[in-house]
């Protein structure tokens, strides 16, 4: 997989003070885990998509997110500076050390579940990358700039499918409603800052979630209206993943994701 084309200046980890460096490490790790776990979930569709065309579309999105995750893991490894590699971070940590929000570890369910999960993530991801792209950290800005085009397409894909399922057949609508009823509670965690995120936001180093919300909400309102789906009343946000308190699903996912590296340490291909 291609490493993003970064200039030497962008590749050099900035000289942050030790404490800030450690905070940024946690933040970048969270971005990496989020993209990796969702990429893995989407890759589970490979060979099982509802039609060949969507099988490929899901695999394409999975690969985009995997590439993005690699860029973050590489940067995280440099920020940590303790000799761990991107593979160590991705494959050799336990579930409680993962920092992805609960949304992305939720099982694929049916196609409607996958579309709603993707839509909620894409809507956040797209706005976040726009913020990171203009942020002060050159490395994150460069990764965001590359990923933004991919995320824009992901959002287009999931938005159009949400509209099709909502405004489609009674069966597609029934499944969509069920997926929304189950998954909407996980959306709030995306924009609820952890203490670490709050501190980095106050320093202006990473995008303030409050500033992303208006555009996110406007897009949700637009897409749901097109889908003829009423806006869900905001459920109490289910929090936990970003601070290491995960659902049971993550353990099973990691068992599969990490199996090869744990069984054959250092294996490459």
């Amino acid at each position: 997989m291609a490493t993003p084309d970064l200039s030497p200046a962008q590749l050099a980890a900035p000289a942050y003070p030790a404490e800030l460096r450690s905070q940024l490490f946690q933040y970048v790790l969270q971005l990496a885990d989020t993209s990796l776990i969702l990429a893995h979930r989407l890759s589970e569709w490979c060979g099982h998509g509802p039609v060949l065309e969507q099988d490929l579309a899901l695999s394409n999105i999975a690969l985009d997110l995997l590439g993005e995750a690699r860029s973050y893991y590489q940067y995280a490894a440099e920020l940590e500076g303790r000799g761990r590699t991107e593979d160590d971070l991705a494959y050799l940590r336990s579930a409680v050390e993962y920092r992805n929000p609960l949304l992305v570890e939720q099982p694929n369910g049916d196609f409607a579940y996958t579309v709603v999960r993707q839509f909620l993530f894409d809507n956040f991801h797209y706005q976040l990358l726009k913020g990171l792209q203009n942020g002060p950290d050159a490395r994150l800005a460069a990764i965001a700039e590359k990923s933004l085009k991919e995320a824009a397409y992901h959002l287009k894909w999931s938005s159009e499918w949400l509209i099709r399922l909502g405004d489609g057949t009674p069966e597609s609508r029934r499944r969509l409603d069920k997926a929304i009823a189950t998954l909407w509670r996980f959306a709030g965690e995306l924009t609820t800052p952890t203490p670490n995120e709050s501190q980095l936001q106050e320093l202006g180093l990473v995008p303030d979630y409050a500033a992303l919300l208006p555009a996110m909400q406007a897009h949700v309102a637009h897409v749901l209206a097109e889908a003829t789906v009423p806006l869900p009343t905001a459920p109490v946000a289910q929090l936990g993943g970003k601070t290491g308190r995960h659902s049971e699903h993550l353990g099973y996912l990691l068992a599969e994701l990490q199996y090869l590296q744990r069984t054959y340490p250092g294996l490459t291909w």
Partner: peptide, 20 residues
């Protein structure tokens, strides 16, 4: 060729299947 419900879906499917 590919299958799609309408032109918009055909365009996205074409992008995903034939321009990877």
């Amino acid at each position: 060729s590919l299958h799609a419900a309408d032109a918009a879906m055909a365009m996205q499917n074409a992008r995903d299947v034939y321009t990877r």
